[in-house]
Design a protein around this nucleic acid. Structure first.
Lengths: 122, 122
DNA sequence: TGATATACCTTTTAGTTCGAGGTATGATGG
DNA sequence: CCATCATACCTCGAACTAAAAGGTATATCA
């Protein structure tokens, strides 16, 4: 049963770090509401997370490209003014991926909350 | 103003990844209740997080050593049966570090929760 | 005697994120 | 008119973390 890593590529050996996939999750979540372009996403993520998380372009663009390559996103080029923007939107596969990442996140988030709670020596 | 990385070492350049420090947080949280040894912590973390997070010895021991080196933990060797266990407990500095990591975690956790919530296009 | 569990530890490998750099256009202002 | 800044794309190298496997040694149990 093929595993996934590196934003969706097939991989052979090692599991990804237990808490990666958050950048991907945030991207997919925002793109699920409306199509957006990379440069815009950089600011949107900062804003949507109340400044808690800032992801630079060096993170955003590679993830975007990976997700497009594996069919989770589709890209549409638009000329605006003299510049070109690349708008991304979710495919069906992208929506599935979003749900999976969301549930992964809930699981680890709950686990940590649980560990941070009351002493174990009950 | 010196920054910290790699579980407390002084460092010169790059910020740590935005969501690292969780292993360290979990360790410190458990050790705040009672002293424990490395091998025990591996199982305790799995259990305390409801199987959501499993950290191997290759993660635990280096973090432990780093925290001891920088004065967040103190170690005490105990012979039990024919084996030697190294028990760790928090110092004052370790408790401070725990509070800092806890608040960092809350911040990013809240940020993500916020981003995953209602659409931004209000 | 051999396998399994405990208990310590390190090294290698893989993967992610950070930061800085590189190109190009449009707007702003001295 | 020229410089600078903001937009908009992109990539690469360095730094750091976590995963996995390997290494040593003792105790227990079949």
């Amino acid at each position: 049963m093929a595993r996934l890593g590196k934003a969706g590529d097939l991989m052979a050996q090692s599991n990804p770090p237990f808490m990666s996939g958050v950048p991907e999750l945030l991207l997919l979540r925002l793109l699920n509401d409306q199509e957006m372009y990379g440069y815009e996403l950089v600011r949107s993520i900062k804003q949507a997370t109340d400044e808690a998380i800032t992801l630079g372009e060096g993170v955003i663009y590679p993830v975007l490209h990976g997700l497009e390559r594996n069919g989770s996103l589709k890209a549409k080029r638009k000329a605006v003014g003299g510049r070109t923007r690349v708008y991304y939107s979710l495919t069906r596969k992208g929506r599935d991926r979003l749900e999976k990442l969301r549930s992964d996140w809930h699981r680890i988030q709950s686990g940590i909350t649980s560990a941070l709670g009351a002493p174990a020596n009950a």
